[in-house]
Design a protein around this nucleic acid. Structure first.
Lengths: 245, 245
DNA sequence: CGATACCTTGATCGATCTCAATGTCGGTGG
DNA sequence: CCACCGACATTGAGATCGATCAAGGTATCG
């Protein structure tokens, strides 16, 4: 039994759900929260490192990530999932794995569809989630395509910090971030050793520090600088013009 | 006027639309095609290289692509858009540009929302499109993260070939692909020179050839081999059926 | 013809990978 | 308490892939 207990809370009643304000069902008015229960087919608790095979679920506590294996046996992390995120296991060979001990609500795909059919706002909330996923992937793609290792790591840290802040985790100074260096490397297309060196640079330069599950933002502005974060639209006249025809 | 004429056709009546079977409105039954007209606010023809500033549109003829500028003035191509694709200009600084001469139907975001609110299957079709975008971005992310230059190019060529085949363009032997090497480089995080060398390898090895706007698949199996291609099952849409009635 | 856009090739440089140790820390069994 | 172990982080040195720089080459078009 000692090993079956966990400090990770299980999801409880939807009406009091702490992550609903950030989740798919945020659009459901309090009066109709009962209908959510018919979509939820169960709750589950998994240990860090366990694969999650349920098709559709809302992460309630803990982190998870989606990844895919490359033909040469390495892996690419596709996205990190935070509490409140709707996660779908797709059929394309990508896997979902708990990054920490985690709990979540399993949803019925069919009943979710029915609910969305009755509630347009819910369908739009679903689409909104997909849109955000897409935006995040575009950012990451830009990182892998055009940023160096330090820039990629800085960018990822800023992104995660923002996502956590938005759901009330951490503060401007930092947040709990349980990533190992291997997760960062696999997400950013780097070797673990190089991810380590990039983090060391950020630390040495007093920009950010990720250690023992804690992210500290030491110099937000400097961090954005090395991330190539464009707060203002950059002047474009000199940008290399693409082919015109 | 010689320069204002174009061989690129403008979209005509929705009822006879050639790309509708692959587009957002594929779920609208013939009997209700008239309702689409109220969503369409106009049609437009643009030249290759022109920026497209309309917020939401369905590409009818020609190719386009979305891209974003990096702080150092280079650019990252985020996605290529083919006839039938629904394209949204997002607020995040990404731009959309016509890759060839192109025409499209401009949609009203508000009226599209109304239509989706009335017709769940349309909302699901919209979500399905977002899902596919996401799947494509995940594939590309894996490419940039874990494949070498030749693998990335091979993978992109296979992807484009598949997308074209699905909408009736080209055949197993190849298809019209108007990409310049600079597009490929900017999409895959490579320099133009290296993209060129990767294409040269594929050509020399008799796997594929991209020249003068034409993609030839010379050895599909070998191409998949170097791409590290895992044949994926068709994405399972959440539920896009034809609208009843 | 000259200009422009695009493609191709070669040489050098550099960021990142790979391989190989070493370090640290928490736990665990003796 | 100590010795050991496994998981993770760190560091160094050499090898590589792809970027960059620098020319040419080709085709199209006015």
């Amino acid at each position: 039994m000692s090993r079956n207990t966990s400090l990770t809370p299980l999801p409880g009643a939807c009406a009091a759900c702490a992550v609903r304000p950030f989740a798919l069902f945020r659009v459901v008015p309090q009066a109709r929260v009962g209908e959510i229960a018919r979509v939820r087919t169960g709750v589950r608790l998994v240990r860090a490192g366990e694969a999650i095979r349920d098709g559709v679920f809302t992460l309630y506590a803990g982190w998870a990530f989606s990844w895919t294996a490359t033909p040469d046996g390495r892996r690419q992390v596709l996205d990190f999932h935070l509490p409140g995120d709707l996660v779908e296991r797709t059929e394309d060979g990508a896997e979902v794995e708990a990054l920490t001990d985690a709990s979540f609500c399993i949803l019925s795909r069919d009943r979710l569809c029915d609910f969305m059919a009755r509630e347009t706002s819910l369908a739009l909330s679903y689409a909104d989630g997909l849109s955000r996923d897409r935006a995040r992937l575009r950012e990451r793609l830009t990182s892998l395509g055009r940023r160096d290792a330090v820039g990629r790591v800085a960018h990822l840290l800023i992104e995660l910090h923002g996502r956590l802040l938005r759901r009330g985790g951490g503060d401007a100074k930092g947040a709990a971030v349980p990533l190992k260096q291997a997760h960062i490397a696999d997400a950013l297309g780097l070797s673990v050793e190089h991810a380590n060196r990039a983090l060391a640079v950020l630390r040495k330069d007093g920009l950010a520090s990720l250690q023992k599950g804690r992210l500290d933002i030491l110099d937000r502005e400097g961090l954005e600088e090395v991330a190539g974060w464009a707060p203002l639209p950059a002047p474009q006249p000199l940008a290399p013009r693409m082919m015109a025809g």
